[in-house]
Design a protein around this nucleic acid. Structure first.
Length: 489
RNA sequence: GGUACCUUGGCCGAGUGGCUAGGCAUCGGUCUGCAAAACCGACUACGGCGGUUCGACUCCGCCAGGUACCUCCA
């Protein structure tokens, strides 16, 4: 068994820390999921895959992980808390649908994309709209503690009051004085004592569709509240990991910490983990910037920036080839490189199954195994894991070629390591080869290639080349081997 | 304007105070009737200027360029 000495970067302390769960062997992990008002895009794939990697790895190490990833279907406003429209509500009006139709439609689309990316389903996937009562309860608690105030039917968190006793900005490094001078003048700020106060409950304007009764007004909960509520509801007063995109660090996660501190207790979450953004031409890919590419567009190649379609596994591999805390720049060239590299690794897995062991061994597979664990333990360094797998691939091919030998024991470890890391931990699945395995096609192609083999033996190269060229045109890859031939579609 | 971060070879991307990750592309070689695949080899980089050091891509300072957050965003 691998050692459990994982180091992980904690945004809260800004350094790598040894991961020690609050209550071994259980791990509670909460990750901010999507606001379901549009198709999932490449940016959504990053946190999903990053935390899927963590989820898989922790489980692999034997932890009992409860992974909660929410669906935001209410309270996420288009603009500033006072004047903005709810994202879902806006879309619903636009398309003349019930808000919940929008929510279900895009939630399903999200799930489908996640499945294609081989992202495991979380243990619990709660919706904000299903936790209105709990959100009202938490708002009450914060009011009772004296860290919130009611203004015109809305409830706001009193950041100034909070910062007298606690450190607002401990996560983001934000300084309150800076927020004073730098928050823009926006309409409707008059309800708040200070511009940096944030809403816990909002009174609904007449045209606002999504609304619930509360002690203060008919309205809806503030965006930051849902994660605090659902995280603690399902993972307890204290839990281990809270994750999300770096862009949520401020204000979203900072506000969560403030709410938690008042309503649940200080330091209720141990590790804050943030993935970096995917950029396109060096700029963040984002809904508001309009430069995003949806996952469906990538899978079909139907976008003006795409030179071709890229499979879900190519995307997954592409994302894992960069460290999760680095920005990752999108380009066709990089994606094609990922595609080719991945295909080689998968081919290696097939060859590995057929390898024969020898009496002696030039290969030390234990070393590979240790290097892979070491990389994962060092803040989930998936690029290093992949680099190690490529080294292993070289070894595999060399054994296949007969230039290296491996004994049974090392072969066993090599297989275990290669398959465990590639498939179980990195979560790669072999892509389905269209019709290559079809019952009808295989004998036909084999027949044709056997004819070619015969031609070759008779040195009738014009015929054999003709067959190969024609099959290549049809998309077959033909490979001659010592024994005869191999092909794939 | 404030805060933080980044700048690595043709491209993507790890990493380290001295031991030149990895992938893709390109160019040689081996193998092959020729290819393909595979293997071997080549190309060996760390924005600029100073400083610390026996030694810096890695630490410090300055400069340049870029990005993110400060408003919704994964």
């Amino acid at each position: 068994m691998a050692d459990l000495n994982i180091n992980i970067y904690n945004s809260l302390t800004r350094k790598k820390e040894k991961f020690v769960p609050i209550k071994y062997p259980f791990v509670g992990m909460y990750v901010c999921g999507p606001t379901v008002y549009g198709d999932p895009h490449l940016g959504h794939a990053r946190p999903a895959i990053t935390f899927d990697l963590l989820f898989r790895y922790l489980k692999h190490l034997g932890y009992k992980v409860r992974y909660v990833r929410n669906i935001t279907d209410v309270g996420h406003l288009e603009n500033d808390a006072d004047e903005g429209e709810d994202k879902i509500g806006k879309k619903a009006k636009l398309e003349q649908l019930e808000p919940m139709e929008i929510v279900d439609y895009y939630t399903n689309r999200y799930h489908k994309a996640m499945e294609q990316l081989n992202v495991l389903t979380p243990s619990i996937e709660p919706r904000a709209s299903g936790h209105i009562i709990e959100q009202i309860e938490m708002t009450k608690k914060i009011l009772e503690a004296g860290y919130a105030y009611i203004s015109n039917g809305s409830v706001y968190f009193d950041v100034l009051k909070y910062s007298e006793k606690y450190n607002y900005g401990k996560l983001s490094g934000r300084v309150l004085e800076d927020l004073y001078s730098n928050t823009r003048e926006l309409d409707g700020q008059h309800e708040k004592k200070n511009s940096f106060d944030f809403a816990l409950w909002k009174k609904a304007s007449p045209e606002h569709i999504m609304r619930w009764p509360s002690p203060w007004s008919v309205g809806f909960p503030g965006w930051h509240l849902e994660c605090s509520v659902m995280g603690h509801k399902y993972l307890g007063e204290q839990f281990d990991i809270h994750g999300g995109g770096m862009d949520l660090l401020f204000p979203h996660h900072e506000c969560e910490i403030a709410q938690n501190t008042v309503a649940v207790g200080e330091n209720s979450i141990k590790y804050w983990i943030h993935n970096n953004m995917i950029t396109i031409n060096g700029q963040k890919m984002g809904k508001s910037l309009g430069n995003f590419i949806t996952l469906e567009e990538i899978f079909t190649g139907n976008h003006k920036l795409l030179e071709q379609a890229y499979s879900p596994m190519t995307i997954r591999f592409f994302i894992l080839q960069a460290h999760y805390r680095s920005t990752l720049d999108f380009s066709n060239e990089a994606l094609k490189a990922a595609e080719k590299g991945l295909a080689r690794l998968l081919k290696g897995a097939e060859i590995l199954e057929k390898l024969k062991s020898s009496d002696s061994s030039d290969v030390n597979a234990t070393e590979l195994k240790e290097k892979c664990y070491e990389a994962m333990n060092d803040d989930l360094n998936s690029p290093i894991v992949i680099a190690n797998l490529f080294e292993a691939l070289k070894t595999i091919n060399s054994i296949d070629n007969g230039t290296l030998k491996i004994d049974a024991n090392n072969l066993q470890i090599l297989k275990e390591t290669y398959n465990t890391f590639l498939f179980d931990i990195l979560g790669i699945i072999p892509e389905k080869k269209s019709n290559a395995d079809s019952e009808v096609l295989k004998p036909v192609v084999d027949l044709v290639l056997n004819l070619r083999l015969k031609a070759k033996k008779e040195k009738d190269f014009s015929t054999s080349d003709y067959i190969r060229d024609e099959l290549t045109k049809l998309g077959f890859k033909i490979k001659d081997t010592k024994e005869g031939f191999e092909w794939e579609l």
